[in-house]
Computed example of a mutant assay.
Amino acid sequence: MPLHLSESEIVDRAALLPAFPSVVNDILQTLDDDNATLGALIHLVERDPVITARVLSIANAAAMAGRTQRDVRDMQVAVSLIGLSKVRETVLGVSLANFSSESRMGRHFWEHSVAVGVAAQELARLGRISTDYALVCGLLHDIGQLWMARCYPLEFQMVRLSLSLEPTLDILEAERKHFGIDHCAIGRLLATAWRLPTSVVAAIQHHHDAHPPADKLVAATHVGEVLANALDLSRQDEARVVNLSESACDLLGIDWNDDLNYLFGKIEARARYLARIFS
């Protein structure tokens, strides 16, 4: 018999998870604020010593690669070396990596999340939309599974067992069988409760849809999930190539007749690199 979970119970039980990092919303708000300054971003970085250390480490690596003989300790110098985009990417990734780690999810869960985030980013470039939003959508697309594993570990393991015994079983069907709801719907509730932008909520909710809404961010997350599984970037035994939405590909301008090996190689290389950097 499946569980009978109300929406309020799902949101209330999110208290069992670590506190969602507020810096994620802060970063996304700076993207939508035309008056946001470099100083505001630096302030966000310097609030967290772990993130500060990671940004300075990347900046020092860049300085060494550029044969600059200096020990970078100033955040403004660090930003000038690696750029605003890389700083935002690092802040978002490290914050959500810590969140995932504190939630006690396995390494494969985070590696898959990073892979989808990177794939969504590269697809966002094709679709000419925000790569920062795309990264967040990819990193959080399976947040509903994290909730399942933390709040109902026995039922979550039963879903995993069902998928291993029935390779053709759809993951959403397996989840509904045991939970009465799937991780996409749970993810929507959590993202809404955390006051994430509506576009991010939609991407989390619809990333498995065969016919997702005509939204480029949703499309990038959906296709990113398919590519991450097809390329087996997290090397999971249960990685599955879900149905690929033709309309999502068209929306992003993807033509599978083109030579996309460069795109696939870039996604794979960046996913491996960022999984190390963020962790």
Results as ranks from 00 to 15, higher is better:
22 S>D: 12
23 V>G: 01
23 V>A: 00
23 V>E: 03
24 V>L: 06
26 D>S: 14
26 D>Y: 05
26 D>I: 04
27 I>F: 04
28 L>G: 03
28 L>P: 03
30 T>P: 02
31 L>P: 01
31 L>F: 12
31 L>K: 08
32 D>E: 14
33 D>T: 08
34 D>G: 09
36 A>C: 06
40 A>Y: 13
41 L>M: 09
42 I>V: 15
42 I>F: 00
42 I>M: 13
42 I>N: 00
44 L>I: 12
45 V>T: 02
45 V>W: 00
46 E>A: 08
48 D>Y: 05
50 V>Q: 13
51 I>R: 00
53 A>R: 14
53 A>V: 07
54 R>Q: 14
56 L>Y: 04
56 L>T: 06
56 L>N: 04
56 L>R: 08
59 A>N: 07
59 A>C: 02
61 A>R: 12
61 A>S: 11
64 M>E: 15
64 M>N: 09
64 M>R: 11
65 A>K: 11
66 G>T: 10
66 G>L: 15
67 R>M: 14
68 T>E: 15
69 Q>C: 07
69 Q>Y: 12
69 Q>G: 02
69 Q>K: 05
70 R>P: 00
71 D>A: 06
71 D>P: 00
71 D>N: 07
71 D>L: 10
73 R>E: 14
73 R>H: 12
74 D>A: 03
75 M>E: 04
76 Q>T: 11
77 V>F: 08
78 A>Q: 02
78 A>G: 01
79 V>S: 00
80 S>A: 15
81 L>S: 01
81 L>M: 10
83 G>H: 06
84 L>E: 11
85 S>F: 12
85 S>R: 15
86 K>G: 01
86 K>T: 15
89 E>M: 08
89 E>Q: 07
89 E>V: 03
90 T>W: 08
91 V>N: 02
91 V>W: 03
93 G>K: 05
94 V>A: 01
94 V>P: 04
95 S>D: 04
96 L>S: 03
96 L>Q: 02
96 L>I: 09
96 L>T: 01
97 A>P: 00
98 N>P: 00
98 N>H: 11
99 F>D: 00
102 E>S: 08
103 S>Q: 05
103 S>G: 08
106 G>C: 10
107 R>M: 10
108 H>F: 09
108 H>A: 10
108 H>R: 13
109 F>Q: 10
110 W>F: 15
110 W>P: 00
111 E>Q: 15
111 E>N: 14
113 S>Y: 04
114 V>K: 05
114 V>A: 08
115 A>M: 04
116 V>R: 07
119 A>I: 06
121 Q>V: 06
121 Q>L: 07
122 E>A: 08
123 L>T: 05
123 L>V: 04
124 A>W: 00
124 A>M: 04
124 A>T: 06
124 A>H: 00
125 R>Y: 12
128 R>N: 13
129 I>H: 08
130 S>H: 01
130 S>L: 01
132 D>Q: 12
134 A>Y: 11
135 L>G: 02
135 L>S: 08
135 L>F: 13
137 C>F: 09
138 G>T: 03
138 G>H: 08
139 L>G: 05
141 H>Q: 11
143 I>R: 02
143 I>H: 05
144 G>K: 02
145 Q>F: 05
145 Q>P: 03
148 M>I: 04
149 A>L: 11
151 C>K: 01
151 C>L: 05
152 Y>F: 15
153 P>M: 06
154 L>H: 10
155 E>R: 09
